[in-house]
Amino acid sequence: MTSLKDLILAFCMWCNESYVGHTIRDSVWLFPFVEIFHLLALGVLGGCMLVLNMRLMGIGFRTDSVSDLARDLRPWIIGSIAVMLVSGFLLFSTEAVKMYGNWGFQVKMLFLVLSIVFTFTIHRRVTSHDGAAAGVRWTTALLSLAMWAMVGLGGRSLGYITTAASAVKP
């Protein structure tokens, strides 16, 4: 029986051998070029999340209501997440099989899914009106910041974690 693990590994191998994976891997400058977009989108997404969550906690930007700020920033949050996902996938495809065995990458993906789901469900609901209780606002903001921070820290860890080459023999 094919387990989920095998499916994921097969997907990683396919990415590794895909045209995109090959092209970026074989080029000297494509990888850093894509990284620049990943970093710029990190700035926009992180900046928007900081502004919105600081407002949610009441520690800045108090001349705007939470819901106004959330509405104004939403397109930038969605747009930067899209750029992060596309550029992130391109970077991933160059070393997908290596990432399969990298526990930092697994942590990053876990928190990425959690962060995205949280952003578009609970976070969105709490920031769509202005009457949430202080406890709810603080909890939502801190959870949002902590989960996104884990995605970032997971990403930073990737280059430092050496994966056992023997773990995967394609």
């Binding site: 710029l40 990190l42 700035g43 928007c48 900081l50 502004v51």
Partner: peptide, 17 residues
């Protein structure tokens, strides 16, 4: 380096906004 990169959210993000 991690602090330098992740502070991009605060500094670069706010500059861009």
């Amino acid at each position: 380096e991690t602090i330098h990169v992740l502070t991009l959210t605060l500094f670069l993000g706010f500059v861009l906004l």
